[in-house]
């Protein structure tokens, strides 16, 4: 465990907490893409199946359980408890366009043709694009609440820090995983445009509003 990895995980955790807290405190999930949240739920479920099969560390297991629980809680709040506030008219991204290619790619490019490995690979591919419905929703409405922006920023920072972690691990441990790295680069690049808007607008106290 290096500092980039630890900060990345903390940032990831922070993003999830920011989102849950926002929904809970405002009693509303307006502006949040339920589809992205469903995709993240699927990502965690398919990736963390190894909770049952292999033990790595207490940290690892606890974080996995927390991510799973927080993800399911978010989905529950959006689709059950605060369903009335869910902005589904603006959440129109077709998720099959992400899920189907992720399945196909996982079957074609993987480290080992075994169920758990393919599910892990699928989760890596899907995670890299799972935020697209949310970004699409922001672009459709042309704006995002500051708190939603903070959530997206923390989520983007998480993958950015993981990139630094992989560079460090390659250099220090001779360890690298090309599937994770390529997908991680794609994922981070998707956030770049948002990072720019976040830094130039949200951090200066303005609302994130896209130019008309």
């Amino acid at each position: 465990m290096n500092i980039f990895r630890l900060l990345g995980d903390i940032s990831h955790l922070l993003a999830i907490i920011i989102l849950l807290r926002k929904i809970w405190m405002s009693r509303s999930c307006a502006g949040i893409s339920g589809k992205s949240q469903l995709l993240f739920g699927l990502v965690y479920t398919t990736r963390y199946l190894d909770l049952i099969t292999s033990y790595i560390s207490l940290y690892n297991s606890v974080m996995k359980v927390v991510f799973l629980a927080a993800s399911y809680a978010t989905i529950y709040l959006m689709y059950v408890k605060f369903k009335a506030t869910y902005d589904h008219n603006h959440d129109t991204f077709r998720i099959e366009f992400l899920v189907v290619p992720a399945v196909a790619l996982a079957l074609l490019i993987n480290h080992d043709f075994q169920v758990v490995e393919i599910l892990w690979t699928f989760s890596i591919y899907l995670e890299s694009v799972a935020i697209l419905p949310q970004l699409f929703m922001v672009s459709k409405t042309g704006e995002a609440e500051s708190i939603t922006s903070h959530y997206l920023f923390a989520l983007g920072v998480y993958r950015g820090l993981y990139l630094l972690n992989w560079i460090y691990r390659f250099w220090a441990e001779d360890h690298y995983d090309l599937i994770a790295i390529v997908a991680g680069v794609v994922q981070t690049v998707l956030y770049c445009d948002f990072f720019y808007l976040y830094i130039t607008k949200v951090l200066r106290g303005k609302k994130l509003q896209l130019p008309a």
Partner: peptide, 10 residues
């Protein structure tokens, strides 16, 4: 063939 890599990342 290389052994499966242990997935120690989240």
């Amino acid at each position: 063939e290389a052994p499966p890599v242990q997935k120690d990342e989240l």
